[in-house]
Structures are given as structure tokens and as C-alpha cells.
């Protein structure tokens, strides 16, 4: 099998075992630029592992991952880290903001990791915080803002490097409906405006409804549900 034509990120026949458990057992995936793909499935089905493999955080035991014509599985850990810094963005369930940095410093962090100057990075960070309507929190620490606000800061952080692919792992998992909707709306709007692809891991249908297409993972196997036309 080869990558579907025009896909930005694709994976064929991924397998990954953690000890005796097969987290992935022949999963496939592909995403186009500007596309939002929901990865759904029950807990423990291997959704997160699929995301970690696709993002080059965890190398799969076997299978091929292709990003923009390059084979991810053949890259070294350092190269994959560099790729994550430059081309990928991440949002996690509980924000995972660095508690001692202020919100704007948190948002600027990925730029700083890429070597940007502090002032410049924070200026860019602030424009993203404006887009996510959290610019008034810039000087606060993550501990001083609400969950929804924190998650929006986290989204701003994931988008600040203008990534080509945004990985979101249960981005609304810790939020109520209203905040969750708002975060999803801002996230997908922002991603669409930059033509970024979004890999959205969720078990919530209303969150998945923000996607263009969904993939179901069950027992480590993925099933691409082509929209019925």
C-alpha cells in the first residue's frame, strides 16, 4: 500500500505493542492539508497511541508513516523532535501548561524552543492569544485562569508556530459543553484559516462533529468511515 494521493500525513499497517497489549494492530490513516479528521473509539482502543505514532512521539513497532513525502519511521529521535517543533502542534486534555510560566510565556514556548527571540516570540504569542480571545490573561499564571481559558491558551500555544498538522488529544475532555464548543470552534476556525490539518482524538460525538471525516479505532484496528454521499 502507498500513501493516498495528496495526503499530508499517512500511515499504513501500524503496529505497536506495550508489553503484552497490542495498542495498535494494523491501523491505517491519512489526512489532507486543511482537513480535520476525528479519531474515535472506546477507551483503550489505541486512539492515543495512533496519535503518538502519527506525531512521531512514539516510534511504531512496524508500519510506515509518511509526512509530506518523508518517511517518519526512518527518522532519528532528534529529527522527529525537530519536526515536532517546526511542523506539528499539540493540545492535550489538561492543557499541560507549564505552571510557573505566565500564559503568554507558555504560548511563546514552542517558538522559543525553535530559537526565536523572547520579545518576538511573545509578540507573536499575543496575536494568537487575541485570536483565541485570551489576550487579557497574558500576564497570569495557568493556576490563576479557568479550565476553559487554560485550554484556549493551550490551543494558542499549539498554533503559535503555524503548524502544518495539529494534534489534539481530547482537547475538550476536561471542559463543560459550552467551553468545549467554544474551544472546538476556535480551534477548527484557526486551523482552517492556516490550512493546517487537524488530528482530533475524541470519544465525544459533538466534538467529532467538528471534523470533516472520522476514523474509528477498535482493538487497535482503524476503520476509515468515508462520508456517505
Amino acid at each position: 500500500m502507498t500513501a493516498p494521493a495528496g495526503s499530508l500525513l499517512s500511515a499504513q499497517d501500524l503496529r505497536k505493542a506495550y508489553g503484552p497489549t497490542n495498542a495498535l494492530d494494523g491501523a491505517h490513516f491519512s489526512i489532507h492539508p486543511g482537513e480535520v479528521v476525528a479519531v474515535m473509539g472506546p477507551s483503550g482502543s489505541g486512539k492515543s497511541t495512533l496519535l503518538h505514532c502519527l506525531a512521531g512521539i512514539v516510534p511504531p513497532d512496524s508500519g510506515v508513516i509518511t509526512y509530506n513525502g518523508r518517511e517518519l519511521s526512518a527518522m532519528s529521535d532528534g529529527e522527529r523532535s525537530a519536526l515536532r517543533r517546526s511542523d506539528f502542534g499539540f493540545v492535550f486534555q489538561f492543557g499541560q501548561l507549564v505552571p510557573e510560566l505566565s500564559c503568554v510565556e507558555n504560548v511563546a514556548l514552542p517558538l522559543r524552543l525553535n530559537g526565536a527571540k523572547r520579545k518576538e516570540a511573545e509578540r507573536t504569542a499575543l496575536t494568537w492569544m487575541e485570536r483565541l480571545e485570551v489576550d487579557d490573561l497574558a500576564k497570569k499564571r495557568p493556576g490563576e485562569v479557568s479550565g476553559g481559558q487554560g485550554q484556549r491558551v493551550a490551543v494558542a500555544r499549539s498554533l503559535v508556530t503555524s503548524p502544518r498538522v495539529l494534534f489534539a488529544d481530547e482537547p475538550t475532555g476536561a471542559l463543560d459543553s459550552l467551553n468545549g464548543e467554544r474551544v472546538m470552534q476556535l480551534l477548527t476556525d484557526a486551523a482552517r484559516s492556516t490550512n493546517a490539518a487537524v488530528v482530533l482524538v475524541t470519544h465525544e460525538a459533538r466534538v467529532a462533529a467538528y471534523s470533516d471525516r472520522e476514523i474509528v479505532v477498535r482493538d487497535g484496528k482503524s476503520r476509515d468511515m468515508e462520508p456517505v454521499l
Binding site: A55, I57, S81, R85, F88, G89, F90, F92, Q96, L113
Partner: peptide, 16 residues
Amino acid sequence: KKLLSALVAFGTRRRT
């Protein structure tokens, strides 16, 4: 631990 893993996900260097 979680935070460290998240930082690694963004591509934070071990050296940093």
C-alpha cells in the same frame, strides 16, 4: 511527569 511528556511532545530538546 505528565508535563515533561507534553513538553517532549512539542519537540523540547532533552538538553533544554
